[in-house]
Nucleic acid binder design. Structure first.
Lengths: 216, 216
DNA sequence: ATTCTGTCAAACCATTTGGTCTGACATCCG
DNA sequence: CGGATGTCAGACCAAATGGTTTGACAGAAT
């Protein structure tokens, strides 16, 4: 197999050791997420992670204890970013404003952080053995959103739907642009590195959902 | 790691060797698909495949040449089933009939063959290096469907949409019930082995799409 | 200067991996 | 019967894996 392209590691002036160390850990995690996204926990190799990070395997193990620990840390890092993404989203401006904002944020994250979404999806695909703890918290947010959607239906603002399945469907459509990005590019006639049209994607999903709910 | 449960291998009377041989290959492929779905090509082990098939590693290698060959054969097998699934679907009965049928078939396949869908999705996630040849044919069908959807819009039967993205979104929603089945069960409060409600899922996706397109 | 701490490469190690070799046994064909 | 062919388990092997040990070097503190 060809050596993977090393991520660029911006040069850090010596003297600021704590910061340098933290940045290197971030850099390693970013490299690891790409490797885990492509090969899963079992298929990922520490050598592959080191190569992607542009460091030796020894240096990698100077910063981490084990592959499993790095995997778990990357997963919680991702779920943390994910939760942060929806801080401060407006819950009280009605279905159209909320759904438009929600969909736009999800699509943007999928396009800017495809490796993160893929690694997460891979973990879910193999039964999510390490995620049930994380999900316990996320389930709360999901149920809260379900009640909100149910209330909209009560008020006649939208057609009555299964709120949980609606969320599944929005997740599926928005995350698809990370998961099956290669398929989307191929079918669209784009090259492997051409950018997907974020505004167009957001507009199409939003229109499908708003019309699908018969938002008033 | 605990030994994976071996798939049941129905006893085959001796004497019918050709049939027995073919059935054993099918049995091995089924076991391999489960292993590949869970661990990807690199993470899958031939020992794991042999264990799942309930045979020795030697016996496995008596029937296959290499892990890669088995992987490729499983992929083409899956795409073959997938193509067969849509033989004879009615193209001329208008959007509602077509979309309802299409969604129902996709959901059913995801629920009855989750490992197949997951293995395929895994391959797509890692850039689908082995699928571009397969996709060349499938792209034709996709473009044909796009023209059909465009014609519906021309006739005023549906709202105007990007036909390609509409297909992506239907794929994403329907395949999600294989890909993120564990997440769906968790969020729904179901146990890991409880069945998902196929009719309900089909109804919700179909309603979202038909309303989303403002089908007349 | 010396000692201590953080950083890192080369060599190394035990285990697991994909895959083969040898040889046994069974069945079919003459 | 006897050989040819198909089927399969156990021992085996080279390579790759995750991870450790050794020791070197740099800079800061004493």
């Amino acid at each position: 197999m060809a050596a993977p392209e090393a991520l660029s590691l911006r040069h850090v002036g010596r003297g600021d050791l704590a910061r340098k160390r933290g940045e290197l850990r971030d850099h390693i995690r970013a490299a690891a997420i790409v490797e885990f996204a492509e090969h899963g926990l079992r298929g990922a190799s520490t050598q592959g992670i080191a190569d992607r990070a542009g460091i030796s395997k020894t240096k990698l193990h100077y910063y981490i204890d084990s592959k499993e620990e790095l995997y778990a840390e990357a997963l919680t890092h991702i779920t943390g970013i994910w939760a942060d993404l929806f801080e401060g989203i407006a819950l009280d401006k009605g279905p159209e404003a909320f759904l438009s904002d929600y969909i736009a944020r999800k699509v943007r994250f999928s396009l800017t952080h495809p490796a993160e979404v893929r690694m997460f999806t891979g973990e879910v695909m193999r039964g999510a053995p390490m995620l049930h703890a994380v999900w316990a918290g996320s389930r709360e947010a999901t149920l809260r959103a379900s009640r909100l959607i149910g209330a909209w239906a009560d008020q006649g603002l939208i057609r009555r739907v299964d709120p949980l399945l609606l969320q599944f469907h929005i997740w599926a459509m928005t995350e698809a642009y990370a998961v099956m990005a290669s398929e989307a590019r191929f079918m669209s006639g784009l090259g492997p590195d051409d950018p997907l049209d974020e505004a167009h994607i957001v507009a199409e999903i939003t229109a499908l959902v708003l019309n699908g709910l018969r938002v008033q």
